[in-house]
Amino acid sequence: MILLITALCAVTIIPRIIPAFIVDRLMLPEWCVTYLNYIPYAALGVLIFPGILNAVEHPIHGMLGGFFAVILALLRVPLFFIVLGSIVFVYIIML
């Protein structure tokens, strides 16, 4: 287990630190910076769906939990309460 975790540590840290070595040697054109700006939003979308379908036992429950989180976020509820509220909501609809 320790060996596995050490290997996982290596493969998770390598992609994170390589940019620190190369960013100096690279002059990025403006379109590249614009492209980088969109990465987080693309990544969030990709990570949310379709993974959310398997988040809990039933895909519908996952989707409903997701919609509930969207509503809370639209109401400007703080991050912590969005996450907590969604867990409570999913717990209730599973009853």
Partner: peptide, 24 residues
């Protein structure tokens, strides 16, 4: 068990909570 299963939504709720303000 119910709470353990329900907590599976946590990661996704976090992602959604980060995305919505940007869309706004």
């Amino acid at each position: 068990d119910g709470w353990i299963v329900a907590s599976g939504i946590a990661l996704y709720a976090l992602f959604i909570a980060l995305l919505v303000p940007a869309v706004r």
